[in-house]
Design a protein around this nucleic acid. Sequence first.
DNA 1: TAGCATAAAGTAATAAAGCGCTATCTTAGA
DNA 2: TCTAAGATAGCGCTTTATTACTTTATGCTA
Lengths: 202, 202
Amino acid sequence: MPPKTHLTAEQRREKTVAAVVDLCANEDPASITTTEIAKRMKVTQGALFRHFVSKDAIWESVIGWVAKQIMKRLERAKNDAATPLEALKAMFFAHIEFIRERPGIPRLLLGQLQHSRSTPARLMVRQLLSEYRKSVEKQLISAQLDGELRKDLNIEMAATQYIGMIQGLVIQSLLTGDMQYIVDQAPGAFEVFCQGICAPPE
Amino acid sequence: MPPKTHLTAEQRREKTVAAVVDLCANEDPASITTTEIAKRMKVTQGALFRHFVSKDAIWESVIGWVAKQIMKRLERAKNDAATPLEALKAMFFAHIEFIRERPGIPRLLLGQLQHSRSTPARLMVRQLLSEYRKSVEKQLISAQLDGELRKDLNIEMAATQYIGMIQGLVIQSLLTGDMQYIVDQAPGAFEVFCQGICAPPE
DNA sequence: TAGCATAAAGTAATAAAGCGCTATCTTAGA
DNA sequence: TCTAAGATAGCGCTTTATTACTTTATGCTA
């Protein structure tokens, strides 16, 4: 059977999102054109507009997919852990694993944050990071109540540090141009983070 | 005396750099056009190309200026400090102060890191961050030798954490759209960072 | 020191290329 | 057979860069 040329609208939208995520792995999101997306999907540029009313709508779909993926993986990681601190660790490595699978993710999200104009996509990124942060703070609070963390630890600061830890790794990877760096350095980074927030041994 | 309309090439180049840095405070660097730069300088778009051979050349000048500023301020901060750890703290706050004065700086550098294509400007950002990191690691090593830091601390990880700390604050600021956040949160962030790397009190 | 020549800075218009998007026709597949 | 996906072609707009012309500042000479 020859490969289907005419996909359903639903399938085509999924392929489009995948194509954009892939392109972000090697390119500045701001410079990705509809022509380029179409070329990677082996359709003509105009065909994209059968399934999306505008380019902005494509970005909305992309961010929507990313947000869903991240939160789903975070939730799964959390549920498999015994203690709050272990849950936080699992969440961290779930994020790292997602980046390893889809190296375009950091660029993609960072690219949206760069705009100052409030597109729907940008609002969705804000929403995502807000939820993400809340999720981290929740674990930190639980861990503190359980006595795993220092009593005087500022939860907000610790959450910023947590997000910064990932960002620091991402920046370093963008420099080297290789996301494998993140995977290699992640365990050590989390260890240093822990030593900053954990209660000192009795 | 009426304001000079015809500036020297040198003065015009400086004004151009300043205009771009200013624009980055409220806009995605990737979307800044030569027309926009010219408008802010009150000259016509074509006039820019008397002083820069291309738009890329403008970015080169901008990054050059930023790099020089940052390293200059870092050096000054370092020299005024008594201990290595205090020097690191001074460097941190010098960076924060620079961002406060020029809120476009994080967007600007982040924007360059987003490209994967190796423009001269991008290489300059790589160079800058590499020097920056080296400078941080140097202070960390000194501090460790002086017994201010934990003996088993991984210096590379600590440096990544340091850069991540700034990045975490920047991300949060990009979300709120207000760089004042960084200034307010900086002292607390540094404190958490210190607790992670410093030697436990005897 | 007035006047002028000249080099450099700036203007205005436009070329060339690429962008998002659409209207119209064609074809695959249930 | 008929509907929805895709192809084709092109429109209107924006962007970088160039060109031909004009204005400003300055140093030199009489």
